[in-house]
């Protein structure tokens, strides 16, 4: 029982981070239908930006803010300079995806070239162990869970109650009509890429205070973020949150029965079963 509770707690911590990753990719995919493979690069880029600012002796919080800012800009730039010209040429989904992959691999290699392959820790965040009965976790874990949920709630509030949020929802549900009433969907796309990149930057920050950054951390994060979205259901941001929690908890609890190496296998199995039984995802609407 103690082990179960401990693993469940771990699952919730991981799940919160996964949910954040899921919404960060989901908001982009749901609105623009771009298989944004370069999201993984933005994740790595955010980590290293924050690190670079701390190396320049900027204090942690300002470094974080500056790093998030540059990551957001990077995300907007990818949309504006890479995807948008392809959309204008009405390129196929597949070619936009291949471009995204090119950005991912080139960007990640560039970081490797500049900073080398070594792992880089982000220091300065207070880490203490907290024990509640048999369950233990650290202040970093607690902070991660709190921040993830604050950010997710803020995102939903933003989408639900602001003009820009309304426009994003409008473009994602009926792009043609949005054009007709005078919404500039290109600007909305750039905005959405900015938001998604900001969110993934926060997730990158949270994982970097826990685990040091390496040039290839982006791939795993990317993988989780889109598996989460397809698991939860395309078109429903709530689905990505649910998908993230489920993955996090499943991945953690499976340790009770299987060795850790099978973690990926379990995630894959869940995805496979969901696509087999309900291809539109847990909360998704039926695919026509």
């Amino acid at each position: 029982m103690g082990l179960f509770l401990q693993l469940l707690t771990r699952g919730i911590i991981t799940g919160s981070l996964y949910a954040l990753l899921g919404v960060s990719w989901g908001i982009i995919y749901n609105t623009t239908r771009t298989f944004h493979f370069a999201h993984g690069f933005i994740y790595t880029f955010a980590s290293y930006s924050i690190l670079v600012f701390t190396w320049m002796s900027v204090p942690l919080i300002p470094s974080l803010l500056l790093g998030l800012f540059t990551a957001t800009l990077a995300g907007c730039a990818v949309e504006y300079f890479a995807y948008l010209p392809m959309r204008k040429k009405s390129a196929s989904q597949l070619s936009i995806f291949l471009t995204a992959m090119g950005i991912m691999i080139a960007g990640q290699s560039l970081i490797h070239l500049v900073f080398g392959p070594d792992s880089r820790p982000l220091e300065g965040f207070p880490e203490h162990v907290i024990s509640l009965g048999t369950v233990t976790f650290t202040t970093v874990d607690l902070f991660t869970v709190l921040l993830c949920w604050i950010v997710i709630v803020c995102l939903f509030a933003f989408l639900g109650h602001t003009k820009a949020g309304m426009m994003i929802r409008a473009v994602s549900s009926n792009p043609e009509k949005a054009t007709f009433i005078g919404i500039d969907s290109r600007r909305i796309f750039v905005l959405v890429f900015g938001i998604g990149s900001l969110l993934v930057g926060i997730a990158a920050f949270l994982s970097t205070i826990d685990k040091p950054a390496t040039p290839n951390i982006g791939l795993g994060a990317l993988l989780i973020s889109f598996i989460t979205v397809f698991l939860g259901g395309v078109g429903r941001l709530g689905g990505a949150v649910l998908g993230g929690i489920i993955l996090g908890i499943a991945e953690s609890l499976v340790i009770m029965v299987l060795p850790t190496e099978y973690k990926m296998m379990v995630i894959f199995l869940i995805l496979f079963l969901v696509v087999l039984i309900k291809p539109e995802g847990l909360l998704g609407k039926k695919i026509a």
Partner: peptide, 23 residues
């Protein structure tokens, strides 16, 4: 030491370039 990332960078850049200008 740099061969792996350099190779990655070249492949990635070629992918971007070709998809954009000569799909």
């Amino acid at each position: 030491d740099l061969i792996v990332p350099l190779r990655g960078f070249i492949y990635g850049a070629l992918l971007i370039f070709f998809m954009r200008f000569r799909p």
